[in-house]
Design a protein around this nucleic acid. Structure first.
Length: 219
DNA sequence: ATGACGATTTACT
DNA sequence: GTAAATCGTCATA
């Protein structure tokens, strides 16, 4: 499948976050094998105005330098002493200063699942890429890939993908940003409803009345 | 130089 | 549900 052009990324974070759902993330191994997955969950980090964003207040550091660079590049950072996070740099909406990005939070594996399982050290398909740290481990994404240009790279890039007709994309609050004040309650997370590969289900799908059986029911 | 803190995951009660 | 793991980064001194 073809890759989106630079202009695809030249939009604000909320637009890109929604636009990425269904797109395919591809990682080429040293041997040329493709590891790929469809994006099923994203979060928008709006830039200097967003308290949960690494560029909040205009902060510029060695770590977040990529966020201030051109759109369409990968911003990869390391956190909790053990996990990497993959973001895609996009345009900052109002001030035109950059510093915005979308966090890729979950993938539905579609190519190379066995290699992903090896690198993750787990076998359950639902556990391969259902979280921002998990998918980086599965696709071997680390700081070495920071600032990679997804438009031109032959190591990490994006391709157009299908959005199945039964997918319902919903929005809710972001995960793990509870100390971001009013920004913690903004609905800046996008995910496919009831998709088995998302990291955490939306509250609207979780808080179900007690039902002892696994019966499905309409919402 | 030092201390506090993660855009998380996993195991365990 | 709670807690531990684990270390680069950043603000402060």
């Amino acid at each position: 499948m073809p890759r989106p052009p630079r202009e695809f990324y030249d939009v604000d974070a909320q637009t890109l976050a929604e636009r990425l759902i269904g797109m395919v993330l591809v990682r080429a191994t040293r041997k040329g094998t493709r590891l790929a997955g469809r994006i099923v969950e994203t979060e928008a980090y709006l830039g200097p105005i967003d308290r949960a964003c690494h560029t909040f207040g205009g902060r510029r550091t060695e770590r977040n330098a990529t966020m201030w660079g051109p759109v369409g590049h990968a911003y990869v950072y390391f956190t909790y002493g053990m996990h990497h996070m993959l973001n895609i740099v996009c345009a900052e909406p109002t001030e035109g200063r950059g510093g915005a990005a979308v966090l890729v939070r979950a993938l539905e594996p579609i190519e190379g699942a066995s290699i992903m399982a090896e690198q993750r050290g787990v076998t359950a398909p639902r556990s391969l890429c259902s979280g921002p740290g998990k998918l980086c481990q599965a696709l071997r994404i680390d700081r070495a890939l920071d600032s990679m240009d997804l438009v031109t790279s032959d190591v990490l890039w994006l391709e157009f993908g299908d959005r199945p007709a039964d997918w319902r994309v919903i929005r809710c609050t972001r995960i793990g940003v509870d100390n971001a004040g009013a920004w913690a309650t903004r609905r800046l997370r996008w995910l496919v409803r009831a998709h088995p590969h998302v990291s955490v289900r939306a509250k609207s799908e979780r808080a179900r009345p007690a039902s002892t059986t696994g019966r499905r029911h309409r919402t």
